[in-house]
Amino acid sequence: MTDQQLALQAVSEAQCILNEYLQPRPHDNERILDRLVEVLERPDLIVAVSRLQQRSSL
């Protein structure tokens, strides 16, 4: 999977989690935050985003 694909997949997953949060029903806010952290702090995603940032600054 390319860096771009990893980043897009993570953004898509994060959007789904946020969409769940925006639904008008009771939420476990701590669990929602945990899920967002799980998605956005994946080691492979962190490395991919770092490489994308390096490439964009060249």
Rank of each mutant, 00 (worst) to 15 (best):
Thr2Trp: 09
Asp3Arg: 02
Asp3Lys: 02
Asp3Met: 03
Gln4Met: 09
Gln4Lys: 07
Gln5Ile: 08
Gln5Lys: 06
Leu6Gln: 10
Ala7Lys: 00
Ala7Ser: 08
Ala7Tyr: 00
Ala7Cys: 12
Leu8Ile: 05
Ala10Ser: 10
Val11Phe: 04
Val11Ile: 07
Val11Tyr: 02
Ser12Gly: 15
Glu13Phe: 14
Glu13Val: 15
Glu13Pro: 01
Glu13Lys: 08
Gln15Glu: 13
Gln15Cys: 12
Gln15Ser: 15
Cys16Lys: 14
Cys16Ala: 14
Ile17Thr: 02
Ile17Arg: 00
Ile17Asn: 01
Leu18Ser: 11
Leu18Glu: 07
Leu18Gly: 08
Asn19Leu: 05
Asn19Thr: 08
Asn19Cys: 06
Glu20Gly: 08
Tyr21Gln: 07
Tyr21Phe: 11
Leu22Lys: 12
Leu22Val: 12
Gln23Val: 05
Pro24Leu: 14
Pro24Asn: 14
Pro24Cys: 12
Pro26Ile: 10
Pro26Phe: 12
His27Ala: 05
His27Ser: 06
Asp28Pro: 11
Asn29Ile: 00
Glu30Asp: 12
Glu30Leu: 07
Arg31Gln: 06
Arg31Cys: 08
Arg31Ser: 07
Arg31Leu: 10
Ile32Tyr: 04
Ile32Phe: 03
Leu33Arg: 09
Leu33Thr: 08
Leu33Asp: 13
Asp34Val: 10
Leu36His: 02
Val37Arg: 13
Val37Lys: 15
Glu38Trp: 11
Glu38Gly: 05
Glu38Thr: 06
Val39Gly: 02
Val39Gln: 01
Val39Tyr: 01
Leu40Glu: 02
Arg42Ile: 05
Pro43Tyr: 04
Pro43Arg: 07
Pro43Thr: 03
Asp44Val: 00
Asp44Lys: 04
Asp44Ile: 01
Leu45Ala: 02
Leu45Lys: 00
Val47Ser: 15
Val47Tyr: 12
Ala48Ser: 04
Ala48Met: 02
Ala48Phe: 01
Ala48Lys: 01
Val49Leu: 15
Val49Met: 13
Val49His: 10
Ser50Arg: 13
Arg51Val: 07
Arg51Phe: 09
Arg51Trp: 12
Leu52Ala: 07
Leu52Lys: 03
Gln54Asp: 11
Gln54Ala: 11
Arg55Ala: 13
Ser56Trp: 10
Ser57Lys: 13
Ser57Gly: 13
Leu58Asp: 10
Leu58Glu: 09
Leu58Gly: 05
